[in-house]
Write a protein that binds this DNA or RNA. Sequence first.
DNA 1: ATGAAAGCGCTAACAC
DNA 2: GTGTTAGCGCTTTCAT
Lengths: 322, 322
Amino acid sequence: MVKLAEIAAASGFSIPVVSRVLNPKPDRAVKIAPATRELILATARKMNYRPNRNAEFLKRGRDPVIGVFLPGFRNSLVTDLVMGISDAARNHGFPVSFFFRTDFAGYRDFILETSGRRNCGLVTYPYFQVDRATVELIEAYCANGGKMVMLNADRSLYKVPHIGINDFSGGKIAAEHLLAHGCESFLLVKGCSARCRGFSETVRRAGAELHAGAEDPDYYRFIVEHCRKSSGKIGIFTCADRMAAALHGLLLRAGLPLGGRIRLVGYDDLFLAQYLSPALTTVSQPFAEAGAMAIDKLVDLIYARPVESVLLEPRLIVRETA
Amino acid sequence: MVKLAEIAAASGFSIPVVSRVLNPKPDRAVKIAPATRELILATARKMNYRPNRNAEFLKRGRDPVIGVFLPGFRNSLVTDLVMGISDAARNHGFPVSFFFRTDFAGYRDFILETSGRRNCGLVTYPYFQVDRATVELIEAYCANGGKMVMLNADRSLYKVPHIGINDFSGGKIAAEHLLAHGCESFLLVKGCSARCRGFSETVRRAGAELHAGAEDPDYYRFIVEHCRKSSGKIGIFTCADRMAAALHGLLLRAGLPLGGRIRLVGYDDLFLAQYLSPALTTVSQPFAEAGAMAIDKLVDLIYARPVESVLLEPRLIVRETA
DNA sequence: ATGAAAGCGCTAACAC
DNA sequence: GTGTTAGCGCTTTCAT
């Protein structure tokens, strides 16, 4: 581990100068001779310098750890997020501390614990319904100088930088695919309003018939009956793969083959989706990328660099059911 | 964040004494008056002291970060592991740095990177085939004073403390369940030798017929044919839920209902298993617990406390397919 | 524009 | 047994 002192010795300057070059604070007006900055930057790169976050934040009275709040589900969304976040954080030289919960109480516990530990920054993905209390919690945290980036929640609610994935667009591409394959009547299992809107608006614009219902055994039975009675081409879209998996089995048990007259599209591309038989066509969300971007943005925030929110696009994974 | 100085002031002793009480090194013979130790321990607890790992390890020239190597799969095993590990690490006041790879090259990269960063400890779960080179890597790391705990790999290979899950036992309970439900002939999809042994030994001991084959379309076709032709009670066991998911669909498409004459048991209890219709009966491995224990053991190792390996037991989750 | 000096919270070496 | 001192790698005043 090469340290500042070695770079200082190699470049002929003192440790503080090296520190100032390597850790520029755009907010503070730090003056360094351009030539000096170049030289130090070059030698640091040559010696493959990696900052000791530990020492850096010890002096600042903060913990060089990124706190991460994620929904506590056992599905692939979480693995994608964890992998993207972990890789990006490692690249920046920051360790992480994950906290998995699904409710507001858990979120509050997280913010509280994290304030006590003086984490240098937070990435949070509140899965529960975000309300006034949540927003206040977040604003209080940031008002105290806390840095935070939000993942995939309703960005209209807070001023914190935000990485989202376009749900409307996900519903839309599912509908377009089904339409392109000649489906004439449509069935929608609800679960996310933007996805539903994307799907139903696209279907309606094509002038096709659409039924919608909630994740519910009764509605599932209705779908199976509908498919059995009808002889037309039917497109089914569910807001989550778990619904698609259930329908997949139900339809098969009713003797209704999938991927021909009846087509099924899920959402999330969970791990098992590809192993179903027939394999599930589904909308994949770039959660690994979203997680990585959240970390990148947070690090920018920590070092007072400008940060902007972004909205990522999902894509359709075409397999056998549609 | 209450610090040593405050406890020192409150208890009337000097900072180093407090440090020695709060951070006992069993290997070093540190002498503290029993009364002093009690008093300091009490005030520390009263003031809710949490050590600043940062400062602690800065002095020791190490990074207070636990490096974790995990297989890079998108399935529930990984989420369970990540959650168990994260919770335990947080409880001990350690952040983590996850590294997800599936091959030996990745493992070597991890050990290399981690050595450079001087992590205080490592938890690793090599999923690839562990050979001589891997063992040498691990031994070299430990010989240099590195601390490591292994997850779920063949424990006969190294001297590092180890948290395993009993695969033999998993195969056995699957067989016992199927036998108890009257199955007379058995089909096994291979994938893990200990699980297969547990299953086949149990089945054979009951004097029943057994076919075994690999994860392969041909063998899957054979299974479907076998189920169609036979009229007896059949028990199918797969070494992983992904195989069970495939067979689940294949069998249903062949008009063969699951959970009555034909019973199917998977392995891993992946997220989607419960949503299949009929829902998949499967063997669940306590990976969250295993991950947490690995961290607990590692922390013991870091503070030179005695550590022993353990073997955890899987359990059967009975749902609809068996 | 650069350097000297102090100090973040803790541990380790040594004195008493 | 306990206290004194120094120092981990870095940032931050404050001089110059």
